[in-house]
Design a binder for these strands. Structure first.
Length: 421
DNA sequence: TCTGGGGTCCTAGGACCC
DNA sequence: TCTGGGGTCCTAGGACCC
């Protein structure tokens, strides 16, 4: 028995996924760009060594990429999502105590696993992931999730460790002292300056804070941080089956637009996608919001947010989009170049128990009809391909669709894009 | 010309109640 | 004229994460 946590953290995840099907790129500088080919979200070691920062705007680096022979990809989220699922399924074969923390990281509770030497256990897991899935990972092992994150950070940067670090009581002080404040899980760009002003510069300094003072500096969160860094766990492995609390779906437009028709097409398409996720997870939304803004990098930046109540709760994209657009239209008069639009669904509830309103009662027949229509659409789309049946408004314009000119094939999720040997 | 997308949690303050 | 104390709930905004 042990109360240890492991963090499995993929190295340069998006780049590693691209290399999986392009071994010819193994020693090349590679970057992967965000949606709309906007900025750099993943870099190979070679690209990092050249000094390309995370989040670098792609347009500023176009010449740099060319001059340094950097291979550039648009993000291929279908591929990354699929590889991520494979990793998760491998980890779940070791123990059910797995928390998918993000697309490229997972926590594993080690209580149910027996091993004499955790460092060796980590090495073997790492080797096996490399063999079975083909993605390099770093592994941190410690008594708390915060320390496991910290261990993985060092495992990535210290070649002698071979990609795995277990923080045991003898070595822990050294690594805490060597961890800059900003690298602690839970200390971001706002807290860091506040802590520095109080003379706190490393993870060891934070660990040594008096809990009351930590709470003054960082709120409740600070107290937990001190205890987590001291080896007292306050964050257990989270249950991935907990229903989600909100769904947000948005896009920056391929080009700015003043055209209401384009806004409509974007809003309906994004709402349809968001409500499809809702239905797949057996949820209904009680509230929806639409968020639209101009380019925040240009002067005169403005944004609008309209929220509506959904009575009864629904997963019907057409009806939600219609109400949202109606609400938005009332607020927007001038012709403005819009840059980005998002849909938010929240106050989610299970579709098993439908709470109908007493006052604004809608006929049960009507609700049932909408449910059957959505079911029919979903089953047609499952059978014949996504978006085979869709709202006409989705096709009013495609000009808002983001650019992804340099996307690699969806090797593992599209029959027509299978790799050819 | 060109700068991403999707989440969760905590807190402060206001409205309202007795 | 004077104007307490304590509680709950909701929301917007801020902070964090990847």
């Amino acid at each position: 028995m042990s109360n240890l946590f492991a963090l499995i953290d993929c190295d340069n995840f998006f780049v590693s996924c691209e290399r999986l099907f392009r071994p010819d790129l193994n020693c090349r500088g590679i970057v992967v760009l965000s949606s709309n080919d906007g900025c750099v979200v993943s870099r190979s070691q070679e690209a990092k060594a050249l000094g390309i920062p995370m989040g670098a705007p792609a347009f500023l680096y176009r010449h740099f990429f060319r001059d340094h022979d950097i291979v550039v990809f648009s993000a291929n989220f279908e591929l990354y999502g699929d590889i991520s699922r494979r990793l998760l399924s491998y980890l779940t074969s070791l123990t059910p105590s797995v928390e998918a923390y993000s697309v490229d990281e997972a926590f594993v509770g080690l209580a149910g696993i027996t091993a004499h030497n955790w460092q060796k256990w980590g090495q073997s897991v790492r080797t096996e992931i490399n063999r079975e899935i083909g993605i390099p990972v770093s592994i941190g092992i410690a008594n708390t999730k915060t320390l496991a994150k910290l261990a993985a950070w060092h495992a990535k940067r210290t070649p002698d460790l071979g990609g795995v670090l277990q923080l045991d009581p003898t070595g822990i002080m050294h690594y805490l002292a060597e961890t800059p404040l900003e690298e602690i899980w839970g200390v971001g760009r706002r807290l860091a300056p506040r802590l520095k002003a109080a003379g706190v510069h490393t993870a060891l300094d934070v660990q040594r804070l008096r809990p009351r003072f930590a709470e003054q500096l960082m709120g409740l969160h600070g107290r937990q941080l001190v205890s987590e860094l001291s080896g007292q766990s306050s964050h257990p492995i989270a249950d991935n089956n907990q229903p989600r609390k909100s769904i947000m779906h948005g896009r920056m437009f391929g080009e700015d637009t003043t055209d209401w028709t384009v806004i409509e097409a974007a809003a309906v398409t994004l709402t349809a996608k968001a409500t499809l996720r809702l239905r797949r997870e057996g949820l209904l939304a009680k509230r929806a919001g639409i968020f639209i803004s101009t380019n925040r990098h240009k002067p005169g930046y403005r944004r609008w947010f309209e929220q509506i109540r959904l009575e009864p709760p629904t997963a019907d994209g057409g009806s939600i989009a219609e109400q949202l657009l109606l609400a938005l239209r009332k607020e927007i008069h001038a012709t403005i170049a819009f840059h980005r639009l998002s849909i938010l669904l929240d106050e989610l509830t299970s579709d098993k128990w439908l709470q109908t309103s007493l006052l604004k009662s809608q006929s049960p027949q009507l609700i049932a009809l909408s449910g059957r229509r959505l079911q029919a659409v979903d089953s047609l789309n499952n059978r014949y391909g996504p978006r085979m049946v869709r709202y006409a408004a989705e096709d009013l314009s495609a000009s808002w669709q983001p650019k992804r000119a340099l996307r690699s094939p969806r090797y593992t999720t599209e029959w027509s894009e299978l790799p050819i040997i």
